[in-house]
């Protein structure tokens, strides 16, 4: 049985189901309780689970993440929320030096079942400190897993997997996805990490799209289909681990790859993926690997400037056509 739910509802259901199932799961963050989360994601959880397990915190990101780690080390399964990805910087020591390294430094003894939910992406005219997509910063930190779903169904299944796992997960939720509806299975299901989803099959080029921009990639594919260009759209769903086999299989079929994300282009997730494809799949490629990403400037406030900086469906179409026309 399938039904339609929004991305926000999917996350809400995942948290509620896991909290019902396991008393060691709890949620804390700024305004997650009475307010229901600034994006409404935790609405109703306080009423069902009470103040002990749905905790409004002071504005103290380092303490929120660090306390999540401490609780995890002694057997809880905390979910902590960072309201805007931009604010995770305030907790950077905890994420990078403490959370990520606890297991390894202890010779594999520590268990860190901690889920850090982070709202990323540009919601429109929010400017440089409320619009960032910092996924790639953390790809460079061994010890962290990174999920970045693009559909309600994936958000739910991946979040449940994150909560049940014994490794720390940064779970990125693009703000523009929260109100988008999509079909999701009824009842209990999990989605494993490290399994990409083929969103659309095609023959001529592969678009590897990450998080929020998956939708722009799909609409680009639609436009390209009208020009008789058949595009495959792949959504990795998790960046660490990464389903490289699925990406290589697609590129092997199409011979062309465009990587799309809202993180900045320089050293963004696309840089790593492009390097991996160059290392493992260069023989299949008929053209260079292109990236469509946010320009290397802070996100500006003015909406026209913002659109100019962020990746659009038109940019993706242009990149694919460049590869189609490419001659060695």
């Amino acid at each position: 049985m399938k039904r339609e739910i929004t991305f926000a509802q999917a996350i809400n259901e995942a948290m509620a189901e896991e909290m019902r199932r396991d008393p060691s799961v709890f949620l804390m963050g700024e305004d997650v309780g009475v307010f229901g989360g600034v994006f409404g994601v935790s609405e109703g959880l306080l009423a069902e689970f009470g103040e002990e397990r749905v905790r409004d915190t002071p504005i103290s990101e380092a303490a929120i993440v660090g306390a999540g780690l401490g609780a995890a080390l002694v057997g809880m399964r905390p979910i902590v929320e960072i309201m805007f990805a931009d604010f995770v910087t305030v907790a950077m020591d905890q994420v990078v030096n403490q959370v990520a390294k606890a297991r390894y430094m202890s010779g594999g003894k520590a268990r860190v079942p901690l889920t850090i939910r982070i709202a990323n992406g540009a919601p429109g005219a929010a400017a440089a400190q409320h619009s960032q997509s910092p996924e790639a910063w953390f790809m460079n930190v061994p010890g962290l897993k990174i999920a970045i779903p693009s559909t309600p169904a994936d958000a739910k299944g991946l979040l449940k997997t994150a909560i049940r796992g014994d490794d720390p997960v940064l779970f990125f939720e693009h703000k523009m996805l929260y109100s988008r509806a999509g079909s999701a299975p009824e009842g209990e299901y999990l989605i494993p990490f490290g399994r990409a989803a083929v969103r659309r099959e095609g023959e001529d080029a592969t678009i590897i799209a990450i998080g929020g921009p998956v939708n722009a990639a799909l609409s680009a594919a639609e436009q390209l289909a009208r020009q008789s260009v058949s595009v495959e759209v792949i959504d990795p769903r998790t960046l660490v681990p990464l389903d490289l086999d699925a990406l290589i299989a697609s590129v092997r079929k199409t011979g062309r790859a465009v990587i799309v994300h809202e993180a900045h282009r320089r050293a963004g997730p696309g840089a790593e993926i492009a390097a991996l494809l160059a290392e493992k799949a260069i023989d299949y490629l008929e053209a260079p690997i292109l990236r469509v990403a946010a320009a290397n400037v802070p996100i500006p406030y003015n909406p026209d400037l913002e659109r100019f900086v962020l990746p659009t469906a038109e940019d993706i179409v242009e990149a694919v056509m460049k590869l189609i026309r490419y001659e060695i």
Binding site: A125, P298, Y301, N302
Partner: peptide
Amino acid sequence: GKTSGYCGGKGGSLH
């Protein structure tokens, strides 16, 4: 978000 604004339209209220 105009050019004549304090930050040339790049900052907005928050900046």
